[in-house]
Design a binder for these strands. Structure first.
Length: 691
DNA sequence: ACCACGTGTCATCTA
DNA sequence: TTTAGATGACACGTG
């Protein structure tokens, strides 16, 4: 899992769309629909392209005509390629939509979106982005898929309406004509359900109103059932509730799920009076009957809905005319064309800021999106959201790194991180809890940050609740409602970096904490986070502006210069130094072990070589001994032969026991009596006797 | 459950 | 004296 963080500054308003991209999917899924709003070319593009690979169908629709960059993401590479007609068509559509102020939403096959921050007082800008994004998504052709766009674009002459007819729209949507841009604008103007009826009249589908009513009724039933499930889950212990959730997930995957869905939320939103979103978010709204389009209706409290994992994006994408529906059959039949929106209710707390009228854009989206059970498969890792929230802070204006440790502070570290959007029993974004969610009561807590809080960040300055406008979070887990400070009560645990004077922790503590974090990491982190080292996640959490690799590998001078060039808090500085120390030591330990291993291997080789030499020497020794014995035997035989032939002066045989043979330097051989072979005199005696 | 191995980390030593 | 590197020891994960 890897997330990219596009941004878009719209007329002074700043809105962050933090996107979680399953880059693994990018690699695996050739039918990926990826539309991003990014100001290319940026490093993000490189990352995206690098991650997505040449086979992915990532599209980028730049909201900036001035950038002149439109087209497929892989064609937006700084190297520069010719944009394909489909992308140009989509770009023209987007420009038109943007010029008309129609909402636009990037249709992205992502694990999750996070509408992070909308600058206060710039509601128009925010609406422009979000609305435009929604419109683009509704246009379908823009966000459908590469194939879709490429099929529609070449001949449409840039007509956005052509692109607006999404092949993805299946079922009832296929009955409805493609919604032209003008109608998108109408949808933008319509912020209440009643407007939707007008829109349907315009398109000549008055009968849809009746259908809508039927769907509303069905959704009401559905939500009623869901509320019952929620109540049941609330009464059950955690593990049982979890089982219930899993069971529900399974049902959802089978297409029979009646879990609270996007349309539920959207209907709820649409049914709310204008400017009531804030009230909704505060959880002070009465239950609303919602039809899920599947013959069930539910009374849903908005706070409950939010807490039940309803994504704001999802809400944005919902069609207020209730034409939105889920079509598992169509999804399975056309998997590549299915919109793949994994949505979560991570909203920016700034939505409650004055001047940000979220209700203005939410109902603007007059698009039809049918969620698929596949959507539910893509869980959102809570850790990512944790980090997204933090990273988003870093990009916002007025971000103070000093706040980071304070952000980590949370009164109840065991309450579980509520970023676990998929842990609620009625989550529409069903998550695969097997790999993204923690088990147990503290489910959803970010192991990453939890490791920080529980293991490394303890003792840091705290007691501070982050400013609401700095965070974006919805507690999907809470069944108790949607409180005004919901976004901050569960977002951060005691995620504080433990700063000691030495920057180090005692061995025992660090060991125990390390072990705990390892366990938590293994249980809670998704694949990407699991691949991240602890320091990497720490650095990410503290917004260290350097990569761990840089910190570790950088030469000392460069490292010091780097530290001096950037304003870093003591906390960050301490973490950086710790990261560098640990990284260096890690490399040193690896080198040391490698050396040790090499030494051992060399010694083993030496032992083998020496043993081989020893064997050779043994064999040589044996051979030499054998040769010596042969020579001795020969010499002995020679002696016997010589003495057998020797005769004394009287002609008698010479006794070899009494005489011996001596070779002189001149080659002559002497016969010397043994008793005369005294040291120092033998030579002379021998010579004299021989003579 | 036990063991071997690899790895990260810390404390300490060394150049 | 400071510092980066080396290394022993410990804890943990994994097969």
């Amino acid at each position: 899992m890897k997330y990219l963080k596009p941004w878009w500054s719209d007329g002074g308003g700043l809105l962050h769309l933090t996107i979680l991209l399953s880059l693994a999917e990018l690699h695996l899924d050739l039918d990926l629909d990826l539309y991003l709003l990014l100001p290319p070319p940026t490093r993000l593009w490189d990352e995206l392209l690098l991650a997505s690979g040449p086979t992915s169908s990532a599209y980028a629709l730049s909201p900036f005509p001035a950038s002149g960059v439109w087209g497929r993401a892989d064609q937006l590479h700084p190297k520069g390629r010719e944009p394909d007609p489909a992308a140009e068509s989509a770009g023209r559509l987007l420009r038109e939509v943007r010029a008309l102020g129609v909402p636009f939403i990037p249709r992205t096959r992502v694990d999750a979106w996070l509408v992070h921050s909308v600058a206060a007082g710039d509601a128009d800008g925010a609406h422009g982005l979000l609305g435009a994004a929604a419109a683009a998504a509704s246009a379908g052709g823009v966000g459908a898929s590469v194939d879709d766009s490429s099929q529609a674009a070449p001949g449409d002459g840039g007509d956005p309406r052509a692109a607006a007819s999404s092949p993805l729209d299946a079922g009832e949507e296929e009955k409805a004509p493609a919604e032209p841009t003008a109608q998108v604008l109408d949808a933008a103007a319509s912020q209440e359900n009643e407007v939707l009826g007008e829109r349907h009249q315009e398109v000549g589908h008055s009968s849809q109103n009746e259908e809508n009513e039927q769907r509303v009724s069905a959704q009401e039933k559905k939500l009623q059932l869901k509320n019952e499930d929620a109540r049941e889950a609330a009464d059950k212990p955690d593990w049982e509730a979890e089982k219930t959730t899993e069971s529900r997930n399974e049902r959802s995957l089978n297409g029979t799920d009646t879990a609270f869905s996007l349309e539920d939320l959207f209907q709820l939103l649409s049914s709310q009076p204008e400017n009531s979103l804030e009230g909704l978010l505060l959880g002070d709204t009465p239950p609303v009957s919602i039809n899920d389009g599947m013959n069930s209706t539910h009374n849903v409290n908005f706070s409950q809905a939010i807490s039940h994992d309803v994504n704001l994006h999802e809400a944005m994408l919902l069609c207020p005319d209730n034409t939105f529906r889920r079509d598992p059959v169509a999804r399975t039949s056309q998997p590549p064309q299915e919109p793949f929106l994994h949505l979560n209710s991570h909203t920016n707390s700034e939505q409650t800021l004055p001047g940000t009228n979220w209700t203005g854009f939410l109902p603007l989206v007059g698009n039809q999106i049918h969620l698929t059970s596949e959507d539910l498969l893509h869980d959102l890792d809570i850790n990512i959201f944790d980090e997204i929230s933090l990273m988003s802070l870093a990009t916002e204006e007025g971000f103070d790194p000093m706040e980071v440790p304070q952000l980590f502070q949370e009164p109840d570290s065991d309450s579980g991180l509520s970023l676990n959007s998929s842990h609620n029993s009625t989550s529409v974004t069903k998550s695969n809890s097997s790999h993204s969610m923690c088990e147990g009561g503290a489910t959803g807590s970010s192991s990453d940050l939890e490791s920080l809080s529980h293991h490394d960040l303890e003792g840091a300055v705290g007691g501070y609740y982050p400013e609401p406008n700095k965070l974006c979070h919805v507690d999907h887990r809470s069944d108790s409602g949607f409180h005004g400070d919901f976004a901050f009560q569960h977002l951060f645990h005691n995620h504080t970096y433990h700063l000691q004077p030495s920057g180090l922790e005692s061995t025992s503590n660090s060991f125990s904490r390390y072990g705990k974090s390892q366990k938590i990491r293994g249980r809670c982190l998704n694949d990407t986070d699991r691949n991240l080292s602890r320091d990497e996640r720490r650095a990410k959490a503290l917004h260290i502006p350097f990569s761990v690799d840089e910190i570790v590998r950088m030469p000392v001078e460069s490292f010091n210069n780097m530290l001096s060039r950037h304003y870093l808090t003591d906390l960050q500085m301490s973490l950086i130094r710790d990261i560098r120390r640990r990284g260096k030591n890690k490399v040193a330990a690896q080198n040391c072990r490698k050396r040790k291993l090499d030494i051992i291997l060399n010694l083993e080789d030496d032992v083998c070589n020496l043993q081989a030499k020893k064997e050779i020497l043994k064999r040589e020794r044996a051979q030499y001994n054998k040769a010596i014995n042969i020579l001795k035997q020969k010499l002995h035989n020679l002696y016997r032969d010589i003495f057998s032939r020797l005769r004394d002066d009287e002609g008698r045989p010479v006794n070899p026991n009494q005489y011996t043979l001596q070779c002189s330097q001149d080659g002559s051989v002497l016969i010397v009596p043994k008793e005369l072979m005294a040291p120092g005199h033998r030579k002379e005696n021998q010579k004299g006797k021989t003579k």
